[in-house]
Design a protein around this nucleic acid. Sequence first.
DNA 1: CGGATTTGACCGGCGC
DNA 2: GCGCCGGTCAAATCCG
Length: 309
Amino acid sequence: MDYSSWMINTSLDLNINPHRLHEELPKKEVENNFLSLNLEVKKSSVKQESAGALAEELKRVSAENKKLTEMLTEMCENYNTLRGNLMEYMRKNPDKEHSSSKKRKSESNNNSIPMGVNGTSESSSTDEESCKKQKEDIKTKISRVYMRTEASDKSLIVKDGYQWRKYGQKVTRDNPSPRAYFKCSFAPSCPVKKKVQRSVDDQSVLVATYEGEHNHPHPSQMEVTTGSNRCMTLGSVPCSASLSSSPPTATLDWTKSKSSSESKNTSPKTESPEVPQVLVEQMATSLTKDPNFRAALVAAISGKMLHNN
DNA sequence: CGGATTTGACCGGCGC
DNA sequence: GCGCCGGTCAAATCCG
């Protein structure tokens, strides 16, 4: 899968000033320049030409600020466009599972109603009731992951780093492909379950439905604690934010790196705020890691400070 | 030999 | 109440 198309190019070309100051001068020189400007401001006997240079610098920085603002606006617009495209894609490819009239009420409810945090006021209820409540809570933590595999690969294995024990397989009515049932076997008390079934429309797409939340750390996290990006440790799972650790009902199809007409397995419920959150986080991470952006930010802040002086 | 997987039986919820 | 269907159980089987 090609995720590069999802990555936002953060190499912002912010060197918009006519003097190409930041492009040619190292960061340190920029800062020195800024300090010297400050000194100049403090001098009581300001020469005409230095005042002119200062005004010009001020103008330049203001222009840069303006450009930054414009770029930010443009970025927001791009984001909105992307989001719109995503929503349109979701609408065009409604999940067959949800369109099925035979769909059980309970399951569809679980998928569409975002529930809050686990209720903790179980002290007054009986064991049976608390057990029931717990069950309901587990059921509310549902997420779905779409994973593209080789069409020839008939195994229903989704490698996500956790250890799963298969406890059943069933052929369901709305899908000729068998559905496999897994329980998390990494921790004996872990309540998480996973259902894996091939997509009706695209046999090369595996649909993994996670129920519940792991009550133990991710196995790969126990081995690799320094990894900054969890997606890198998830084996063959697409870079997805919809693992069980995410809030309920998040369903993301990151397999859409192929043409949108190819995969048709998403549901309208993906219009949850989850998607923007993921994108925003991704953008923020990318931006903060980009030296160009940081340099531009420094310049912008410097400009702002100059403005205030 | 022990753990994982397979697979038919069973259970319970839901719709008619 | 009955039948259908998804989900789970557990004995049998497989595999390292």
